[in-house]
C-alpha cells in the first residue's frame, strides 16, 4: 500500500498513546495524595484502562510508522532522534501496561511511587518522540 496512506494512519493513531499516557500519569499522580479514599481506586482504574489502550495505540503507531518508512528502524536526522525516543517509549509503555494488567490496583503506596517514576519517565520519552515526530510531518510524502 502507498506509504502516503501509512503516513496519514501514523499521524491519526499516534496521538492516542500520547494523550492516554499523559492522562494515565495525571490520574495516578492525583491518586497518590488521596490514597486512603475510594476515589483513589477509581482514578487508578481509569489510569490502568487508559494505559492499556495507550499500549495498543502505541503498537498501532509503531506498525504504521514502520510501514510508512518501509521498515526504517533508525534512520537519520530528525527521524533518528524520533526513533531514539520512540523505541524505548514503546518498550516501556508495553511493560508498564503489562504490569498494570497483571497487578491491577494491588500493591503498596511505595510501589505506586516507583510505578509513578516509571510513568513520568515514559511521558518524557513520549513527549520527546512526539517533538521530533512532529518535525517529520512532511518528510514522507
Amino acid at each position: 500500500m502507498d506509504p502516503g496512506f501509512w503516513a496519514e494512519a501514523h499521524g491519526a493513531i499516534v496521538h492516542f498513546p500520547i494523550a492516554l499516557t499523559f492522562f494515565a500519569a495525571l490520574c495516578d499522580t492525583v491518586a497518590l495524595p488521596l490514597w486512603s479514599r475510594p476515589v483513589a481506586g477509581q482514578l487508578r482504574t481509569a489510569s490502568g484502562i487508559a494505559l492499556g489502550c495507550s499500549a495498543l495505540g502505541g503498537i498501532g503507531a509503531a506498525v504504521s510508522g514502520l510501514l510508512m518508512t518501509r521498515g526504517d528502524l533508525l534512520g537519520h536526522g530528525a527521524l533518528r532522534l524520533h526513533h531514539l525516543f520512540a523505541w524505548p517509549a514503546l518498550g516501556l509503555l508495553v511493560a508498564a501496561a503489562a504490569w498494570r494488567v497483571l497487578r491491577w490496583n494491588s500493591g503498596t503506596r511505595g510501589q505506586h511511587v516507583v510505578y509513578l517514576v516509571v510513568l513520568f519517565t515514559l511521558t518524557g520519552l513520549v513527549a520527546a518522540a512526539g517533538r521530533w515526530g512532529g518535525q517529520l510531518g512532511q518528510a514522507y510524502p
Partner: peptide
C-alpha cells in the same frame, strides 16, 4: 512483554526492509 514488543517491531522492520 516490553522487550518482546521491541523484538517483534525489529523483526517486522527487517521484513519490510527486505
Amino acid at each position: 512483554a516490553g522487550l518482546g514488543t521491541l523484538g517483534a517491531a525489529t523483526g517486522f522492520g527487517l521484513v519490510l526492509q527486505a
